[in-house]
Nucleic acid binder design. Structure first.
Length: 225
DNA sequence: GCGACAG
DNA sequence: ATCTTGTCGC
């Protein structure tokens, strides 16, 4: 998995993102999607608590849950979230027994100023379909017509002139939108389809991510320090 | 041709 | 992300 050395400074991180953005694929490289893994991280007292939820889409249930605690090596810097979170994602995946067809991570994929958010960098390592789902935009702007899909309003997201992802707004709900973009091995439109299929009327986040979020929070709160 | 924004 | 109470809604 680590045939490439992980960057150790911001300058290395910048170069790394450049490489990664050129190496990843925006084509749909998958068959049937049965198992989807959601990855999320909570923080407490500078420590990170990560959770992975492997979700069985057909039977709509969780088949595996793993958690890890780590001390991130970097402070948060906007644009470089991957420096903190990707090592934790990789450690989580290393613990999983079940194979996953696709991963969902909290954060941006290519909807990022360097076209390489944490979902993209993670996808570069894991070499499987990864989708980034973020709760706030990052240096993107939106234009073009809105597309109506059931209870959602979809808008295109651009970095410069390049289409990088979709915003999902919720009709008749006071919820902030979510921002969906490919990490690796999946197209923009398929990323949107996959996420929409994992939404329900009660929650703003796709199921596996919601469950990972709850699991990470629960873990963080039940560890004694 | 609008650009602050991830966790 | 985290620090925080009550409170509105399904």
């Amino acid at each position: 998995m680590f045939n490439v050395r992980f960057p150790t400074s911001l300058n290395e991180a910048r170069k790394f993102q450049q490489i990664v953005s050129q190496q990843i694929s925006l084509k749909d490289e998958f068959g049937d999607i049965n198992y989807i893994t959601g990855l999320d991280i909570s923080y407490k007292n500078k420590r990170a608590y990560g959770a992975a939820i492997v979700y069985d889409c057909k039977n709509k249930k969780v088949i595996e849950k793993k958690r890890v605690e780590m001390l991130p090596k970097f402070e948060y810097v906007s644009g470089f979230l991957f420096m903190r979170e990707v090592p934790i994602f990789l450690k989580l995946v290393d613990q999983l027994v079940n194979q996953s067809d696709l991963f969902l991570v909290d954060g941006h994929g290519i909807a990022h100023p360097a076209y390489a958010g944490s979902a993209t960098v993670f996808g570069y390592f894991i070499k499987k379909p990864v989708i980034g789902v973020a709760k706030a935009p990052m240096n993107v702007f939106e234009f073009g017509s809105e597309e109506k899909r059931e209870d959602f309003l979809i808008t295109n997201l651009y970095v410069g002139k390049r289409l990088v992802g979709k915003k999902i707004a919720y009709k008749d709900k006071n919820w902030k939108p979510i921002y969906v973009s490919p990490g690796n091995n999946i197209s923009i439109s398929s990323s949107l389809d996959v996420v929409i299929n994992l939404l329900d009327s009660k929650h703003k986040l796709p199921k596996p991510l919601l469950l990972a979020h709850l699991a990470a929070n629960e873990y963080k709160e039940n560890i004694y320090h």
